[in-house]
Every structure is written in structure tokens, then in C-alpha cells.
């Protein structure tokens, strides 16, 4: 915990930061895009089924699915997937660095492990969360337009008209704020678990598991708080 509290001056580590942006952001594109595309399609089918059942009408399906996507599922599912992909990795990496005394070696070489390990991962993770959220929303909306055209007989123009009547630009900005918060939660919780890891390889595994569990839980709670702050007050 001491690492997180000390006064420190931050240094821009171009190499490490770029590496993390690549590893956390670019390499997560496939899993996120595929998952969110299918979640978007599933949501449209479900909503269409229910709306037909209850309202005998499905013209508002694209709008509702888009609202849900932009406000909630886009950032939350993206970041939960990101947590399972990178959270465990960060915790295990730092944990094993601690176990193999790499952290001590860094300190003795006058390098602050927080500065060297956490800041680049933080920047990388926020970058990943923001960019992947945007891409996932775009993919979900695009997939929704295609499915709506195929399945509901809604033209893409009609689809986007309905969508953009409900989804306003501030929604997108709020969604990005969420992504920023979640993107911050993941590396900080994961590296905290790594830094406070006990010695031994079992402990590294435990740290990785705890990182995913705690980060996921924190994301879900933070999402509720942010939604409450944005839309309920």
C-alpha cells in the first residue's frame, strides 16, 4: 500500500507505455469486437421478441438496444472482458516479479516500481478501455443496423434515425467517462494485488484470481454509481 501513497514525480516512459498500449489495447481488439458484436445482435433479437409479445410493435427495438449499449453494456462488458484478459495478467506479472525479487532489483536500480510498472499499464489500460468501448459500440450499432434490416425490415437510415433520437452525444461522453473509470480500476486493483502478493507461485495465482474478482466487482459497483450520478440525480 506504501507504493500508492508516497509522493512521487511521474516520468513519461515512452517504450513501456507504448508496449502496454499495444498489449492491452490492440491485442484485445479481436475478443472484444467479436463478443460485443454478438451481444449486440442477441440484444436486438431479445428486445424484438419481447416488444412484439407485449407491444405488438418493434420499431423502437434499435433505439432501446442502442441506449442500453451506449449507456451500459458498451463500457461495462468491454471492461469486464478487459479485466479478465489483462487484470489477471497484470497481477500475475507483478506478483511473479515480486516473488523473483525483480521488484527489489528495480528499487535497487533506483527505479520506482510503481512508476515503472503501474503508470504505463494505467495509460495502456485507459487507452484500451476508451478505444475498445468506442469500437465495440460502433460494431454493435453496425451489426444492429444489419440485423434490423434483415430481421425487422428496418432500413439503416430508419435505424440510425431512431437510434440517434434516443442516444445523444452526451451519452457517448458519459460512456467514455465510464470507460475511463473502469480502465483506471483494472490496473490499479490488479497491480495492488500483485504488489501485495505473498511469496510462492500459488500466491501469484491467488493474486491473479483476486485481481479479476475484485476488479470486476469494483467495475460493476462503479457502473451503478456512475449511472446513478448521470441519469438518476
Amino acid at each position: 500500500m506504501n507504493y500508492f501513497l508516497k509522493n512521487r514525480k511521474f516520468r513519461w516512459r515512452r517504450e513501456e507505455t507504448l508496449e502496454q498500449m499495444y498489449v492491452l489495447g490492440v491485442q484485445s481488439i479481436p475478443i472484444i469486437v467479436v463478443s460485443l458484436a454478438f451481444i449486440g445482435l442477441m440484444m436486438i433479437l431479445e428486445l424484438a421478441f419481447h416488444m412484439r409479445l407485449v407491444l405488438k410493435h418493434d420499431s423502437l427495438v434499435p433505439a432501446f438496444s442502442a441506449v442500453l449499449m451506449v449507456r451500459e453494456l458498451g463500457p461495462v462488458i468491454t471492461c469486464l472482458l478487459l479485466t479478465s484478459r489483462i487484470g489477471a495478467g497484470i497481477a500475475a506479472e507483478i506478483g511473479s516479479m515480486k516473488v523473483t525479487e525483480q521488484l527489489d532489483a528495480l528499487k535497487l536500480l533506483s527505479i520506482d516500481p510503481f512508476d515503472y510498472l503501474v503508470i504505463p499499464r494505467w495509460i495502456g489500460s485507459v487507452f484500451a478501455a476508451l478505444s475498445l468501448t468506442m469500437i465495440s459500440i460502433a460494431v454493435a450499432l453496425g451489426g444492429g443496423a444489419l440485423l434490423a434490416a434483415q430481421k425487422l425490415g428496418t432500413s439503416s437510415g430508419e435505424y440510425f434515425n431512431t437510434v440517434f433520437f434516443f442516444v445523444k452525444f452526451p451519452d457517448v461522453l458519459r460512456c467514455l467517462i465510464k470507460a475511463f473509470v473502469f480502465g483506471t480500476i483494472i490496473p490499479f486493483i490488479a497491480s495492488y494485488q500483485g504488489f501485495s502478493c505473498e511469496l510462492g507461485s500459488a500466491a501469484v495465482g491467488e493474486a491473479a484470481t483476486q485481481a479479476v474478482v475484485r476488479a470486476s466487482l469494483s467495475i460493476i459497483i462503479a457502473d451503478f454509481l456512475l449511472t446513478y450520478l448521470f441519469y438518476a440525480i
Partner: peptide
């Protein structure tokens, strides 16, 4: 930090940065 600048410690295990 000043003390550490004077010292060099070779760990029991290599403790190399594996990345």
C-alpha cells in the same frame, strides 16, 4: 535512494526483468 546509489546487490536468484 542515496544509500542505494552507493550499493549494488546481486540477488540469490537472477531477478532479471523478464520482459
Amino acid at each position: 535512494a542515496q544509500v542505494r546509489r552507493k550499493c549494488g546487490l546481486v540477488f540469490q536468484f537472477p531477478a532479471l526483468l523478464d520482459s
